[in-house]
Deep mutational scan, measured.
Amino acid sequence: THFTSQQLQELEATFQRNHYPDMSTREEIAVWTNLTEARVRVWFKNRRAKWR
């Protein structure tokens, strides 16, 4: 999946605040970024792996 810079900005900003967002937070992010909750969940999983 290719993310727009706007989507990445929103995802990264949320990641800085919370590395493990809950389901409702992921659903909110999905609405803001026009992505599915599953895409958001996978992005956070991959981002945490990169962060370690």
Results as ranks from 00 to 15, higher is better:
T1E: 12
T1P: 12
T1V: 12
H2Y: 12
H2K: 13
H2L: 10
H2I: 10
H2P: 11
H2N: 10
H2R: 14
H2W: 12
F3N: 03
F3H: 03
F3V: 06
F3Y: 12
F3C: 05
F3E: 03
F3T: 04
F3Q: 02
F3I: 11
T4D: 05
T4F: 04
T4R: 04
T4Q: 03
T4I: 03
T4H: 04
T4W: 05
S5C: 14
S5P: 14
S5A: 13
S5F: 13
S5W: 14
S5H: 12
S5R: 14
S5V: 13
S5Y: 13
Q6F: 14
Q6E: 11
Q6H: 11
Q6L: 11
Q6C: 11
Q6N: 09
Q7D: 03
Q7A: 06
Q7K: 04
Q7H: 04
Q7V: 08
Q7T: 06
Q7R: 03
L8S: 06
L8I: 11
L8C: 08
L8N: 06
L8R: 07
Q9K: 12
Q9G: 07
Q9I: 12
Q9S: 11
Q9M: 14
Q9V: 11
Q9L: 12
E10G: 08
E10N: 09
E10R: 15
E10K: 15
E10F: 15
E10M: 15
E10Y: 15
E10L: 15
L11W: 01
L11N: 01
L11A: 01
L11F: 02
L11M: 05
L11I: 02
E12M: 03
E12A: 01
E12F: 04
E12G: 00
E12T: 02
E12Q: 02
E12V: 03
E12P: 00
E12K: 02
A13V: 08
A13Y: 10
A13P: 01
A13C: 13
A13K: 13
T14A: 15
T14Q: 15
T14K: 09
T14H: 15
F15E: 00
F15T: 03
F15S: 00
F15M: 00
F15W: 07
F15P: 01
F15N: 01
F15G: 03
Q16C: 10
Q16D: 06
Q16A: 10
Q16I: 09
Q16K: 10
Q16M: 10
Q16S: 09
R17W: 10
R17L: 11
R17I: 11
R17N: 08
N18C: 14
N18D: 07
N18E: 06
N18R: 03
N18G: 05
N18F: 06
N18I: 09
N18M: 08
H19Y: 05
H19P: 12
H19R: 11
H19G: 04
H19C: 09
H19A: 07
Y20H: 06
Y20D: 04
Y20C: 10
Y20Q: 03
P21W: 05
P21K: 01
D22Y: 03
D22G: 06
D22R: 06
D22K: 06
D22M: 04
D22V: 05
D22S: 09
M23H: 12
M23Y: 14
M23P: 06
M23A: 09
M23G: 06
M23C: 07
M23R: 15
M23Q: 12
S24N: 12
S24R: 14
S24Q: 14
S24E: 11
S24H: 12
S24Y: 09
T25Y: 08
T25Q: 14
T25S: 08
T25C: 11
T25F: 07
R26D: 02
R26P: 02
R26F: 07
R26I: 14
R26G: 02
R26S: 02
R26W: 05
R26V: 09
E27P: 01
E27F: 13
E27Q: 14
E27L: 14
E27I: 15
E27T: 12
E27D: 06
E27M: 15
E28P: 00
E28T: 10
E28M: 14
E28V: 10
E28R: 13
I29N: 01
I29C: 03
I29M: 04
I29A: 01
I29E: 01
I29W: 02
I29L: 12
I29P: 00
I29K: 01
I29F: 03
A30I: 02
A30D: 01
V31T: 11
V31P: 00
V31N: 12
V31F: 13
V31C: 14
W32V: 15
W32K: 15
W32G: 10
W32Y: 13
T33P: 02
T33G: 04
T33Y: 09
T33W: 07
T33Q: 06
T33S: 06
T33D: 02
T33L: 15
T33I: 13
N34D: 09
N34Y: 06
N34S: 09
N34H: 10
N34V: 05
N34A: 07
N34G: 15
N34F: 06
L35W: 06
L35T: 13
L35P: 00
L35C: 07
L35G: 03
L35I: 06
L35K: 05
T36H: 04
T36F: 04
T36D: 08
E37R: 03
E37H: 04
E37M: 05
E37N: 04
E37S: 05
E37P: 07
A38T: 09
A38N: 09
A38I: 12
A38E: 13
A38Y: 14
A38G: 08
A38P: 11
R39Y: 09
R39L: 15
R39G: 08
R39D: 15
R39K: 14
R39F: 11
R39H: 10
R39E: 15
V40A: 00
V40L: 03
V40R: 01
V40S: 00
V40E: 00
V40W: 01
V40D: 00
V40Y: 00
V40F: 01
R41D: 07
R41I: 05
R41H: 07
R41A: 10
R41T: 06
R41K: 08
R41N: 08
V42G: 08
V42M: 14
V42Q: 14
V42C: 14
V42T: 13
V42Y: 11
V42I: 14
V42S: 12
V42R: 15
W43Y: 02
W43Q: 00
W43F: 02
W43G: 00
W43M: 00
F44G: 00
F44V: 00
F44S: 00
F44L: 02
F44T: 00
F44Q: 00
F44Y: 06
F44K: 00
K45D: 05
K45I: 14
K45M: 11
N46T: 10
N46E: 13
N46D: 09
N46G: 07
N46F: 12
R47Y: 02
R47V: 02
R47C: 04
R47H: 02
R47N: 01
R47W: 04
R47A: 05
R48W: 04
R48Q: 05
R48I: 06
R48E: 03
A49V: 08
A49C: 07
A49R: 15
A49N: 08
A49T: 07
K50M: 11
K50I: 13
K50E: 14
K50L: 13
K50Y: 08
K50H: 08
K50D: 08
W51N: 07
W51L: 10
W51G: 06
W51Q: 08
W51M: 10
W51A: 09
R52I: 10
R52S: 08
R52P: 05
R52N: 09
R52M: 10
